[in-house]
Structures are given as C-alpha cells and as structure tokens.
Nucleic acid binder design. Structure first.
Lengths: 190, 190
DNA sequence: TCCATAACGAAACTACGAGTAGCGTAAATA
DNA sequence: TATTTACGCTACTCGTAGTTTCGTTATGGA
C-alpha cells in the first residue's frame, strides 16, 4: 500500500461530472477550468494534480460517459457495419460527450500529443472494428474486391464529424443508415 | 475623394503574404499577430485598423490565395462534378491556404460569426455548385432519383476535411476521383 | 499514539497572446 | 498652410491555462 493520504475517488467523479455539465451548457470553447473547480467544489490544484491539461481532463470526461463502444455481432458483416455506424452517429448526436467531440478538434489541432491520444482512444478503435467488418464482407463477396476500406470508412464516417465542424449542423442519428445505403448501393445507375 | 492619408495597398499585400508564409511554417495554431506584423514590417495597429480579428485576417489571406473556384463546364454534369471535386481536393492539399483551412475550421467552432463568414465564403459556394450539378444529373437520369444531394455531398466532400482534422493525415488530391467513383458506383455488388 | 507522507484548499502568482490606447509623425487634400 | 487620416511605437488591459507556496487534513505504519 502506498503511504500518505489517498486520493479521493469521489472528487474524481465530481470533477468529471462538472466537466460534462459545463460542456452541455456552453460547449468546449466556453469551458474554463476555474468553473469546473467551482462546480465540483474542489480546488483547481486538485484538478491539475490529476490531469496535466484541460484537454486530457475533457478526454477522460468524455470517455467516462461514452464507455466502451461494444456492439454485439450478428455474424452478418454488412449488418454489423451498419449497426456500428448507427451506434456511432447516435452517440455523437445524442450525448453531451458526443456533441463536445467535434469542438474538441480545435484544441487537438494545436496539440499533437493530445490529438494522438484522442485518435488512440476514440478514432482508431472504431476504425479498426469497421476495417475488420469491411474485410470480412469483401471475403464473403458482399462488397466489391477492389474497394479501399479506408476510402469507404472516410465516406461513411466522415459526415458525422464533417457536418458539425464545417457546416455547423448536427449529423442526425437517423442519417447513418441513409449514408450507409447510399455508399453501399451507389448513387448512379448501374 | 476621401480626405486624409490613404491606406497603403502595399501594406495590405505585405500583411496577407506574411500571414500565408507563417501559416505555411507553423499552421494556424502557431500564428501570432505580433509575428505577422514583424514579418510584414508593419505595426500591429496597422493590422487591427484593417481587420477586426485574427480570424478575419486569416480568412482574407486564404481567399487571396485561393481566388475563385471557377471551373469550366463540359456539359456533362457527372464529369463536371468529378472535376469540381478534383479541383477542391487539389487546392486543399497543395496550397498553403488549403492546408490551413482544416485547422481554421476547428478554431471556428469557438466563434459563431466567423464560422458563418467562413461558410458563406468557402463552403456554400462549393456546395451550391455541387448541388446544381447533382440535380442536373438526376434530371438527366445519370443519378438515381431518390438520392439526397446533401448526403451525397457529405460523403464525397467530407473526407477532404475529416481526414486532416480527425485523422491528422491529408486527403491526397488523387483520392478525389477514387472517392467519387466509390460513391457513384457503390461499394456493394448490385 | 505519534510520525512520515501525500492530498487538499486557498490565494497569489506567471506566461502568453489577443486586442486597445495614446501620442508623435508622415502623407494626402483643399 | 490647415485639416484629416494612416502609420509606428510603446505600453498597456484582459482572459485563461497552468504553477507555486503554504497551512491543513487524512491515512497507514512504527
């Protein structure tokens, strides 16, 4: 056992909850560390004792709400891919954490290390999963063999972040399925 | 004629050039107004006499380099759409201004007015043009009638900004055509 | 029970960059 | 020559992230 007064887990929870609340109220740009401290009933030093920066704290707060992205598999890779997409769009559109993610990109472009951690925790797991499903679908002849998995993922996941960041409008959870169908079936006549 | 000493157009050019240079060197997050002033050989007050904020200045610098997006029409709406997409990807990937845009988009999340101007100047003209071409292609029976133009645009343009912002990697100019083909033909077997 | 150790709160502090103010000087028109 | 506006310079204000210092509190071990 380590010596000295132990960290209070209740304070961790209070800080992360306050972060999510303030994120819901004003979004990432308006989030100030002093406000988080006040809302959590904690000193600012207590926050900086736990996280090296505001960005890392927010990353943890988001992770705490999103939890793991596990989706049960049906065995049909295309249906699993559709389901994965639906769940992703849904979480991005309908949770505080999800709605905060696009704006967090601002901070990320300015901090390479933070960007890397963001990708490692939120982006890559999702893309790895999707890539596996796409490869399986190709193997089973459900997708054309000349399809580039990366390109396919960009086309179907891209709008979920492109719309809020660039257009300033949400990507509705319901659009996931429509985008999936569009890209799988193609927009042109055969 | 207005009275008093006139603004020096050479200083405008010097400021915009310096902005582009520094954008090329360190990207948007590292761009400091004091540095622009020093590089341009101008006082900071001269910059703020012309632009109300750093963001507006950068928007003008980018516009100065990108110029207008006019692309000649061939009459074939699908080929024109492909060409528009290629030009867009190319400019985003291969100009200082284009490479700065993604990081700027992120910054825009914090400033609604600036975001609106950004969309008005750079995003909407492109999307309006694409929408027209898509509608024309539908009318000519080259695209399915049940295709949602907005969804189609999101899928083909999205990756150009999604990749740099979220993945931290460029969207190669060459990928424009591949994405276009994928979304038009569809990834699945018919 | 005492002691070493580390967490905590409070307040004052530093660092940094955007944007502003005041003033003396330069360039234009009438 | 008088007026008006641009310009440079210097020194500011302001907001926020992150730090420092120190007195206080909780815990586990001797």
């Amino acid at each position: 056992m380590s010596i000295g007064r132990p960290r209070d887990a209740a304070r961790d929870r209070a800080i992360l909850s306050a972060t999510l609340e303030l994120l819901a109220e004003g979004g990432y740009p308006a989030l100030r560390v002093d406000d988080v401290a006040r809302r959590a009933g904690v000193a600012k030093t207590t926050i900086y004792r736990r996280w090296p920066s505001k960005g890392e704290m927010v990353l943890d707060a988001i992770a705490a709400q999103l939890g793991d992205r596990s989706v049960e598999e049906s065995g049909d890779p295309l249906e699993d891919l559709r389901r994965l997409l639906e769940v992703t769009y849904e979480r991005l559109a309908e949770t505080v954490a999800g709605r905060a993610l696009p704006a967090l990109s601002a901070e990320l472009m300015a901090d390479r290390a933070l960007a890397e951690e963001y990708r490692r925790r939120f982006v890559h797991p999702l893309r790895d999963r999707a890539r596996t499903l796409i490869r399986r679908a190709v193997d089973q002849g459900r997708l054309r063999g000349d399809v580039d998995p990366e390109l396919l993922m960009d086309a179907i996941v891209g709008p979920a972040l492109y719309r809020p960041i660039v257009l300033g409008v949400p990507a509705p959870a319901a659009s996931a399925s429509a985008i999936f169908d569009l890209v799988i079936s193609g927009a042109g006549h055969t």
